[in-house]
Simulated assay, not measured.
Amino acid sequence: MKLDQQILQDFGPSVFQRPLFYSYPAGLRFRLSESGNALELFLLALRRATLICKDIFADDPIVACLRKHSGTGHFEHRRTLQSLASAGVSIPNQRSIWSEEIDPEEWLHETSPECWLYLSFEVSASLLETLLWCALAKDFRKIQPNPGCDVYLFNLQKKVVVFPYDDRGMDVVGPNRELLSVLYKKHQSYLLDGDRHAMEISFNSP
């Protein structure tokens, strides 16, 4: 089965809706950074995200899914691939590429149709921190390498997906309620306070 088909089969179309935490039932939302300058925020977010994600992936392969707006020019898409290569991420021949139409009310320009472009591929768990770097660097122009796209990390074996949406936070969702419950209990101190009540209802109710 192709990666895009397996992702949509296991997680459903809502997995790419944003905010992911509010689109997918009974998920987790973690606080990644606190305060400081841009570099301090980025490095703290990277450390926390890596700590949590090691409990999700361990030695399991990672299916990375990159999402980028179609409105950017060909040069921008080429720059994304170049940034990935400079980070040590090689796109394997076995990959899935697809697109999703964007509602016309959400177009950045009214003159031409727009869509989300997706590229998914499987890599070794050894690239976990590198992929998290690529995900979190998106909003930091001076931090390189920086592919400038959304990065979703899927563990298809355990049926959990990680979405670091920026240096402030990271959503973790999926049908594997048992693993999510373990993460909820182990990483209590990193849960995002604004959504803690919703998570308590999902994972701490009798």
Rank of each mutant, 00 (worst) to 15 (best):
R196D: 06
S33E: 11
P175I: 04
L46D: 07
A49C: 11
V162C: 12
L131Y: 01
R47F: 08
F21P: 04
Y118G: 00
G36Q: 07
S112K: 10
L136P: 02
L136T: 08
Q188M: 07
D193M: 11
L46W: 09
I91R: 05
I97A: 13
A137R: 10
K138G: 00
H109P: 00
L44F: 07
E110D: 13
R177G: 09
P19V: 03
L127F: 04
P147V: 06
S23C: 11
K68M: 05
L131T: 02
N155W: 06
R177L: 13
E129Y: 03
N155I: 10
S120R: 08
P25N: 07
L136C: 09
D4E: 15
E34S: 14
S202L: 04
V173P: 09
Q5L: 09
F42W: 05
A64Y: 01
K54W: 09
L81K: 10
R31A: 14
R177A: 11
L44A: 08
E101W: 01
I143G: 06
N146V: 06
Q188D: 14
K186N: 13
L191A: 06
Y118P: 00
L20H: 03
Y22D: 11
D139I: 01
M1S: 10
T80K: 00
Q82K: 14
F140E: 10
F140T: 04
N155Y: 10
F154L: 02
I201F: 08
L32M: 11
F75K: 15
K68F: 00
I201R: 14
A38S: 15
L192F: 15
Y165T: 05
H74V: 07
Q144G: 02
I52N: 11
G174T: 06
V172Q: 02
S35V: 06
W107H: 14
S120L: 09
I201D: 11
E76G: 03
P113C: 14
N146S: 06
S90K: 12
N37K: 13
L20D: 01
W98A: 02
C65H: 02
Q188V: 10
L84A: 03
D139P: 01
L20N: 06
E40N: 12
D59E: 15
Q6S: 10
